[in-house]
Design a protein around this nucleic acid. Structure first.
Lengths: 113, 113
DNA sequence: ACCATGTATTCGCCTATCCGAATACATGGG
DNA sequence: CCCATGTATTCGGATAGGCGAATACATGGT
């Protein structure tokens, strides 16, 4: 309702970016992009302790990057905004370009992703 | 030359996102998107102390988000990857959508950006 | 060589983040 | 009602991030 000022938007923007700025959280988001999952499934699939996963999910939830739904005693986490994955993919693409540019303009091509 | 493993790429990705996860750095990047600038010009335009700007620029430089070029005694900073701004804009768009969705699905439309 | 301007760095402090370990809490079944 | 399973939270410690203030460094001009 109260529409954010530009400054507030900037702060939110930064806080979302910061949430994306952790390797494990990126793994979690990409995992959820494949399919929604239980916390325990994420923990198992990514080989990260359950409490750690839970805390990271909380961060992502605070930033509205994931949503939850109960499934009995378990909780299903899903991407709140699938478009975010597109953004992340674009960043990765840029990153690879940038890396390629750094280490020799004439380097032979490398595998994708 | 050494092409990064997926894990390494993930780490780089996270570190770049983290660099984006600070309000002042976002302001700096958007300012540089308008036009390359001296450190002092950034400091003046954004009303941020020069040493602070310098430190943030260093972070952005470490992540290869900006590049430098000497201009006499001054230093011109530019965006290393203009595409990053597109990514940031997309994120902002998503953010606004998300905010709109949160605070009432039927809320009257608000101004852009 | 010196000075003025512009940029980078250091220091100390405070806050925030991340983690492992342990524990609390919630849900549904028997 | 109690237990098993699954999830969230707390605690403590280590690490990293951010800032103001002061200072060091670099460059070009005179």
């Amino acid at each position: 309702m109260d529409q954010p000022s530009l400054d507030e938007l900037n702060l939110l923007h930064a806080s979302v970016c910061q949430a994306l700025g952790d390797p494990k959280r990126l793994l979690i988001l990409y995992a959820l992009a494949e399919r929604p999952r239980h916390v325990s499934a994420l923990a198992a699939d990514l080989d990260i302790p359950q409490p750690t996963v839970s805390r990271h999910l909380q961060v992502l939830r605070d930033r509205h990057l994931v949503t939850t739904e109960r499934d009995g005693a378990a909780v299903v986490y899903s991407l709140a905004e699938p478009r975010v994955i597109g953004v992340l993919d674009t960043m990765r693409l840029i990153l690879r370009d940038s890396l390629a540019r750094q280490s020799g303009y004439l380097a032979t091509a490398a595998e994708p992703l």
